[in-house]
């Protein structure tokens, strides 16, 4: 076993691990623990959301009508599709097909950019009419108590999410470059897999943001 390791992939095995499986498992476990911190970070904002929605259910109902369901739904579809292409990109590298993998990852970035473009139009509209967080809120068309808090929470949660999309685009670009250099194969693809995990988590958070902001019944 050791001579196989020595001939085939000595470069990826770091000195303090004894074998690739151990190193790959460690990388994945580390990534998952990082994802837990992401869940709890967003979790704090979900708490703020829950508390203020429970206090002001009518205001939330009124304020959410300022959001465009079509755009939200479009973005949901875009992110789900990007998750599928991400998963397929990992599958391709698992099957030792880096070319196909790059193709899927590029499509994933395409979806991510599309998401941000839609988000840009939504934000631009709200900036224009003054539906802004906190003390910058100047819109007068929404009844109910303190609608500016709704937009504070909306901008913080979607803003933090959009920031993660941006980071995801950066990570994807990095992985694509490495894949093009033929660094990854079915034996070593932990970075691709971990970027995938990150991307799926970003998708997962949007899956909750969408109904909580756009679909208040």
């Amino acid at each position: 076993m050791s001579e196989i390791a020595a001939t085939n992939h000595p470069t990826h095995l770091q000195h303090h691990f004894s074998e690739m499986a151990q190193q790959n498992d460690s990388a994945k476990l580390g990534m998952w623990i990082f994802l837990l911190t992401e869940i709890l970070t967003f979790g704090g904002l979900f708490v703020a959301y829950a508390v203020y929605r429970a206090w002001n259910p009518d205001m939330f109902l009124m304020a959410h009508k300022a959001l465009d369901v079509q755009m939200g739904a479009l973005n949901t579809v875009v992110l789900i599709l990007s998750s599928v292409t991400m998963a397929l990109g990992i599958r391709a590298i698992q099957l030792d097909n880096p070319k196909q993998s790059v193709r899927f990852l590029v499509i994933t970035i395409g979806f991510a950019v599309m998401f941000l473009v839609v988000k840009y139009f939504e934000y631009a509209h709200k900036f224009h009419v003054g539906q802004l967080p906190g003390k910058f809120y100047t819109y007068t068309g929404i009844e109910g108590t303190n609608p500016h808090i709704f937009f504070s929470i909306y901008f913080m949660m979607t803003g933090l999410h959009a920031l993660h999309i941006l980071i995801g685009i950066g990570l994807l670009s990095w992985v694509i470059r490495k894949t093009r250099q033929n660094i990854f194969s079915s034996q070593y693809y932990a970075p691709v897999e971990n970027v995938g995990l990150f991307w799926h988590l970003v998708d997962m958070i949007w899956i909750f943001l969408f109904p909580l902001f756009y679909l208040i019944g």
Binding site: M1, I4, E19, M20, A21, Q94, S186
Partner: peptide, 8 residues
């Protein structure tokens, strides 16, 4: 262990 467990 096989150092090259095929990916699932």
């Amino acid at each position: 262990q096989t150092a090259f467990a095929a990916p699932h």
